[in-house]
Design a protein around this nucleic acid. Structure first.
Lengths: 344, 344
DNA sequence: GTGAAAGCGCTAACAC
DNA sequence: GTGTTAGCGCTTTCAC
C-alpha cells in the first residue's frame, strides 16, 4: 500500500537506482549476483515500476490505442467485431506488458481530427491501431501520421500503400469457397454482390471469378445480381435468382446478411437448403450460427489481425525502421450446413 | 509535431509556467487578462498537457480501469454485455477527459490477484469498475481495495455492503412484469427459476412473488420449475409446464435463454405465442429481438450503470469521502410480441 | 495574483 | 559492471 519506489529497492539491495533500473528493464551489464540481490529486493518489497514516471522519462508510453468507428446503435455484428479486435489486441498487449486504450469514435463528427489529436498528444500511445472503415479515410490516417505516432491500419482498401497495414486474403478465400462449391458438383453458382463503396467487397467478387476459372466453370453475368450488403437487398436478389427457369444450385453472397436473407427466400419458396440450393456468405456474423441451417461462410481473422497489428506496433516501436508492410492474415472457410452436393 | 510544453506556452504568454498550469487546470486566482493571454498562447501553439507528466506530479492518472470476466469463447450475449458496459463508461470518461483502460480477465486463473495488482500498481488508474461476476468475489474485491484504489462494483450480490456499488432493481422490475401479465388477464403465471449461484437471479424470483401478491394472485409452488439459466434447462422446464392438463397461460423465465427455449417448445407443440401462451424473459439479449415472435423481456441498464460507476469514481476521486453507496439504476420493461392477453 | 524552487519516480548519458 | 548527474513536463508548496 505504501508506494515503494526504485530508491527503496536500491537501498535494500545495496546498489544504485540505475542498477535496479537495469535489472527491471533487462538491460545487459549486470553481474548475476547483483541481479539476484536486486530481484530478491523487488520481490520482498513487491515493487512495481510507476508507469507514469517511466513513460515520462522514456518519452513514450506502454499503451496501444485501438480506434474504431462507433455506430450510435451497436448492432450485434458490430459488437462481435469490436470484441474480436479487442481480444486480439489484448493478447499481444498482455505479453509485452502493454495496456489497451480503446477509443470508439464517430467518423461523421466534424472535429474528429481534433479529438484524435487530443487523444494522441495527451495519452501518447506507443502506437495506434486503426480499424476499418476509419482505416480507409485519408484525412484520419494523415491526421494520425502527422503526429508521428506509429499507426497500423486494419483492412485498408488498397494494399498498395505507404503505411503499415494488416489485411486478409478476401480474394483468395473467396476463390477457395467457389472451388469448394464446384467440387460439390455445382455448375451454376450465382453471386450477390455487395455495396460498391465497401472496398474489400470488390475483392470478394474477384475471388469468385477466380474460383470459377480455376474450377473450369464459365463466368456468366446472368448469375451475378447486385446487392448493397443489406438484408433487404439480399431478399430481392434471391427472389430474382430463385424464380428463374434455370435456377442456380448455389448462391454466394458478399456478406452474411444477404446470404441469410437469400436462405430465407429459398426456404419460403419450399426449396431445401442445401438439398435444392446451397447458400454461402462472408463474415461469419453471429447470425450465421443462429439460423437453421447454419450458414457456411468465411470467417475474417479479426482477432488475429488485431493481434498482428499490435505486435507490429510493439516491436516496431523500437526500431526506427519505417518500412511499409501490408501483412496478410488468412481468413478461414467455415463449412456448416447450408452447403452441400448439387442436386442431380 | 515538435512537442510543445508548458514552458513554450509560458514564454509566449509572458508568464510563469505556474500561471499556465493554473489556467489549464481552471484554478482560481488568475486575472482575466492574464488568462486570456495564456489561452491565446495555448491555442496558437496547439498545446496539450502531457498526461504522463501530469500523472506523475499528481500521483494519479486520468484512467478508469474496467475489469470484467472474459469467457474463453465470447458468446454473443457476452459481447453485447461488454460493449454496453464499455459504452457507458466511455460516456462518463469523455466528458471528464478520462481514458478507459479495459482489462478482461479470467477469474479462474490462479494468479489473478497478482495480475490485477500489476495492473493497478503500474497503470495506477484513478478508479476501477468491477463487473459481475467478479464483483461478487470477495478475494478479488479485497485485493483491489487493499491497493487503495477506489472501486465501484457493478451488480454485486448483496447490497448490504461497505463498498461502493451500482445495481439495478431486479426485484421491483420483476414484480412489474408480473403485474403487467396479471393485468392482461393471466391468472396462472408460471416461473422458470435460474441458477442458484447467480445472486441477482434470486431477486428476480422474489419480484415474481411480489408481483403476484400485488395483483391479488396466489403463489403456487406448482407453477415454479427449476432451471439453471441454460437453454436446455428452459426446454425441459417448458415441456414440463406446457404438457400439464391445467396449462399456465403465461411463463416468465429468469433469463432470456430459457425464455426463448420455452417459446420454442410452445411453438413446436402447436401453441400460439402469445395467443395461447405468453412468454417473458430477462436480460434483453440480442436473441430476444431475433426470434419470432420478439421476446418481451427486461432490459438491464448496463450502460447507464457503468456510466454512473465511472462518474462516481471520477467525481469521488477528489473527495476523501469514503461513504458506501449502493446506487440503483432502474431496469426497463421491454414489451414486445411474445406477451398478450390471456386466452379466455 | 503571480512566480521560484523543489519534487513526482523513472531513464539516459556519461563518468568511473 | 556500476554509480552520478541531469533531465522528462508537470504540480505543489510557499514566498512575494
Amino acid at each position: 500500500m505504501a508506494k515503494v519506489t526504485i530508491d527503496d529497492v536500491a537501498e535494500l539491495a545495496g546498489v544504485s537506482i540505475k542498477t535496479v533500473s537495469r535489472v527491471v528493464n533487462r538491460e545487459p551489464n549486470v553481474r548475476e549476483s547483483t541481479k539476484a540481490k536486486v530481484e530478491s529486493a523487488i520481490l520482498q518489497l513487491n515493487y512495481r515500476p510507476n508507469l507514469s514516471a517511466r513513460n515520462l522519462a522514456r518519452r513514450r508510453t506502454h499503451l496501444i490505442g485501438l480506434i474504431y468507428d462507433d455506430p450510435s446503435a451497436y448492432d450485434i455484428p458490430t459488437a462481435g467485431y469490436v470484441i474480436r479486435m479487442q481480444q486480439g489486441t489484448l493478447r499481444a498487449c498482455r505479453e509485452a506488458h502493454y495496456e489497451l486504450l480503446i477509443h470508439p469514435c464517430n467518423y461523421r463528427k466534424k472535429d474528429l481530427n481534433r479529438e484524435l489529436g487530443d487523444l494522441i498528444e495527451q495519452a501518447r500511445p506507443a502506437g495506434i491501431i486503426l480499424a476499418a472503415p476509419l482505416s480507409n479515410m485519408p484525412k484520419i490516417v494523415s491526421a494520425i501520421e502527422s503526429t508521428g505516432t506509429p499507426c497500423v491500419r486494419m483492412s485498408p482498401g488498397k494494399p498498395d500503400d505507404t503505411a503499415l497495414s494488416v489485411a486478409t486474403n478476401d480474394r483468395e478465400i473467396s476463390a477457395e469457397l467457389t472451388r469448394y462449391l464446384a467440387s460439390l458438383g455445382h455448375t451454376k453458382i450465382a453471386y450477390i454482390t455487395g455495396h460498391p463503396s465497401h472496398k474489400a467487397v470488390a475483392n470478394r467478387f474477384a475471388g469468385y471469378r477466380d474460383g470459377l476459372r480455376q474450377s473450369g466453370l464459365e463466368f456468366s453475368k446472368e448469375l451475378v445480381v447486385k446487392g448493397d450488403n443489406s438484408f433487404g437487398s439480399g431478399e430481392i436478389a434471391a427472389e430474382d435468382l430463385l424464380n428463374r427457369k434455370k435456377r442456380p444450385t448455389a448462391v454466394c453472397a458478399a456478406n452474411d446478411d444477404m446470404a441469410v436473407a437469400a436462405m430465407g427466400v429459398a426456404l419460403r419458396m419450399g426449396l431445401a437448403v442445401p438439398g435444392d440450393i446451397s447458400v454461402a456468405g462472408f463474415d461469419d456474423i453471429a447470425l450465421a450460427r443462429q439460423v437453421y441451417p447454419n450458414l457456411t461462410t468465411i470467417r475474417q481473422p479479426l482477432s488475429a489481425m488485431a493481434e498482428r497489428a499490435a505486435t507490429i506496433l510493439i516491436s516496431g516501436a523500437d526500431r526506427a525502421n519505417n518500412t511499409s508492410i501490408t501483412e496478410i492474415v488468412p481468413a478461414t472457410l467455415v463449412i456448416r450446413e447450408s452447403t452441400g452436393p448439387a442436386p442431380n
